[in-house]
C-alpha cells in the first residue's frame, strides 16, 4: 500500500507541505479531516502510513497537542491501536509529535509517561538546528541514516520531559532517535543549539517497535535543497535534508 493519510484537524497547518514532501518521496498523500475518520466515511485501515503534521491543533489550548490527542483517544482509539500494532508507519512532526506523546502512542502505548512543555527560553523559536541520528535506533524512518541532519524547528512547547525510569528505558531501547547537537557535534543542553531545553537533548523518539516516530524539527520544511539556509554559501545539494526521512517512511510502508 502506498497511500499516506495526512491528518487534518482544526488548527493543523503543515498538512500541505507534508503531503508535498511525501509525494516527492513517491507516495500518494491524501489530506483527510479527522471528522471523516471519526464518522467512518474514510477508513484509516485503507492507508499504509499516517502522518500527523504540525500546527496548533485546537489552538494548543490546555497544552500543545492535548486536545487533538483527546479527540483521537475518544473517537479513534481502536483504529489507531490496530494501525500501530500492524506495524504501519506513523510520523508525528512538531504538533504531531506532541499529539503522539499525549495519546500515549509514544514512548510506548501508555498515557502520561512523558510530555512536551514550554521551551526553557520562555518563547516560540524558529531556527535551523543540527540533529544527531542514532543509527542503532529501530526507527523505520531513519533506517540506514547516520551522522547529522540539519532541520528547522518552529515551536513554543518542545521541551521533552520524562521521569528517570522512562528515560533509561528509552536509552536502553534506542528509542531516542534524534538529539540536538552543539557545534562540536555533541548532544547539548545549551541554548540555542538545543532550542527548548529538552531533557537529554531529545528532539525525537520512536516506540519500541520503531514504526511510530515523533520529532519536534520539521523535515517537511526541508525537502528542497533551496530550503536550506546555507545553500548560497555552500552550494546546492541534490535534495533537502528532510527527504531521507520521508523516503524511509515510504519504503517502510511498502514492506508492511
Amino acid at each position: 500500500m502506498t497511500k499516506v493519510l495526512v491528518l487534518r484537524a482544526p488548527g493543523i497547518n503543515c498538512d500541505a507541505e507534508a503531503a508535498e514532501a511525501l509525494e516527492l518521496a513517491g507516495a500518494k498523500a491524501e489530506r483527510v479531516h479527522v471528522n471523516r475518520l471519526a464518522e467512518g466515511s474514510i477508513q484509516l485501515a485503507d492507508y499504509g502510513m499516517l502522518l500527523i503534521p504540525g500546527g496548533f491543533a485546537y489552538g494548543d489550548h490546555l497544552g500543545a497537542g492535548r486536545m487533538l490527542a483527546v479527540d483521537l483517544i475518544y473517537r479513534l482509539r481502536e483504529d489507531l491501536s490496530r494501525f500501530v500494532a500492524d506495524g504501519r508507519p506513523v510520523l508525528g512532526i512538531c504538533n504531531g509529535f506532541q499529539v503522539l506523546v499525549k495519546t500515549g502512542l509514544l514512548p510506548s502505548d501508555k498515557v502520561g509517561q512523558a510530555t512536551l512543555i514550554d521551551n526553557a527560553s520562555g518563547h516560540y523559536e524558529c531556527r535551523w538546528i543540527k540533529l544527531g541520528l542514532n543509527s542503532a535506533s529501530p526507527c523505520v524512518f531513519t533506517q540506514g541514516l547516520s551522522g547529522t541532519l540539519d532541520l528547522p524547528v518552529g515551536h513554543g512547547e518542545g521541551r521533552f520531559l520524562t521521569d528517570q525510569a522512562t528515560l533509561e528505558k528509552l536509552q536502553a531501547n534506542n528509542q531516542i532517535v534524534v538529539q540536538y547537537l552543539d557545534q562540536a557535534g555533541q548532544p547539548t543542553m545549551e541554548y540555542p543549539a538545543n532550542p527548548n531545553g529538552a531533557l537529554n537533548a531529545i528532539a525525537g523518539i520512536c516506540n519500541p517497535a520503531g514504526n511510530v516516530f515523533g520529532l519536534m524539527p520539521h523535515p517537511d520544511r526541508a525537502f528542497l535543497p533551496q530550503h536550506h539556509p546555507q545553500w548560497r554559501r555552500r552550494g546546492l545539494d541534490l535534495e533537502g535534508p528532510g527527504m531521507a526521512i520521508f523516503r524511509n517512511g515510504v519504503r517502510a510502508m511498502a514492506l508492511v
Binding site: N13, C14, A16, E17, E20, A21, G54, H123, Y124, E125, C126, R127, P152, G154, H218, D220, R221, A222, F223, L224, Q226, H227, P229, R232, R233
Partner: peptide, 19 residues
C-alpha cells in the same frame, strides 16, 4: 525568531541570513 518564517516550506531566502 519568535515568528515562524519557515511554515509552508516556501521560504528560500530567510529574514535572517549569513554564516
Amino acid at each position: 525568531r519568535t515568528y515562524d518564517h519557515e511554515v509552508q516550506a516556501a521560504t528560500v531566502l530567510k529574514p535572517l541570513v549569513g554564516v
